[in-house]
């Protein structure tokens, strides 16, 4: 799911000229991502009356590990869970955006998993869209927070978040110099969505299986759950 820099090229390797579509997508994704991160910082600061440091660190490390474990899906490729909807239930949507951004930054800087120029796109696809999946849970749950309705809402939101992330990734890379003349978005969106619809199912099962007992056993930990229930606006 991580877009590497070679997919987007500032200089088109075929024509040796500035690749306008690549530059446009990279610029736009940075331009969308940065204001969200500023908002996330301010919201996290204003919504929490205690330090999130320990919870933020441990849940981020958990997601980092989860993203290291690729499993095969039909079609010969592999996927890993994203973990963002799980994070939103623990940290809330805004701290999730910051947490995932740090995870993505570590992956890009130390392991070249995701590009530095494409960082804005990766942060948009996984951190921002992932963080916003909190509002999908809220939408599906409505005003009912009983265990079954909440579990179904988390399941649906996790699945949808994976598909939306794949859609956004497919849309962006469809305009890259790598794909624009090799099928474009007509190839990249269906390909990405097909693979990550399968991943999304696994993501939904794993997220629901973790959130359900956490809600029962450690509700005090769940900033996102508290926000869902109206404890924090």
């Amino acid at each position: 799911m991580h877009i590497n820099d070679g997919i987007f090229n500032l200089i088109n390797p075929a024509t040796h000229t500035v690749s306008i579509p690549d530059v446009a997508v990279l610029t736009l994704t940075w331009a969308i991502t940065l204001p969200f991160l500023v908002l996330a910082w301010k919201k996290t600061q204003s919504l929490n009356n205690h330090s999130l440091a320990a919870t933020l660190a441990i849940s981020s490390a958990m997601v980092f590990v989860a993203q290291l474990i690729n499993f095969p899906v039909a079609g010969g490729s592999t996927v890993h869970v994203l973990g963002t909807t799980l994070l939103t239930m623990i940290l809330g949507p805004f701290a999730t955006m910051l947490s995932m951004t740090i995870v993505l930054l570590m992956q890009a800087f130390f392991f070249a998993d995701g590009g530095l120029f494409a960082f804005g796109a990766n942060a948009l696809n996984m951190a921002i869209i992932g963080g916003l999946s909190f509002f999908l849970v809220k939408f599906f749950a409505g005003k009912s927070f009983d265990g079954k309705r909440l579990a179904l809402s988390v399941f649906a939101a996790s699945w949808a978040a994976s598909i939306l992330t794949a859609f956004a990734t497919g849309f962006e890379i469809g305009f890259s110099s790598t794909f624009i003349n090799a099928g474009g978005i007509a190839l990249t969106i269906p390909s990405m969505v097909a693979v990550y619809a399968m991943e999304g199912f696994v993501e939904a099962v794993v997220t629901t299986a973790l959130v359900t007992p956490l809600v029962r056993l450690q509700p005090r930990l769940m900033v996102g759950l508290d926000m869902l229930r109206g404890g924090k606006k």
């Binding site: 590497n4 070679g6 997919i7 592999t78």
Partner: peptide, 26 residues
């Protein structure tokens, strides 16, 4: 964990494109 390419890497590989990263990480 599987070492096969993920969905996006496979899409790139199937397109025949050769990807060169500006930064290869530590």
């Amino acid at each position: 964990a599987s070492k096969n390419p993920d969905g996006l890497q496979k899409l790139v590989a199937d397109s025949g494109a050769k990807i060169e990263q500006a930064w290869n990480g530590l």
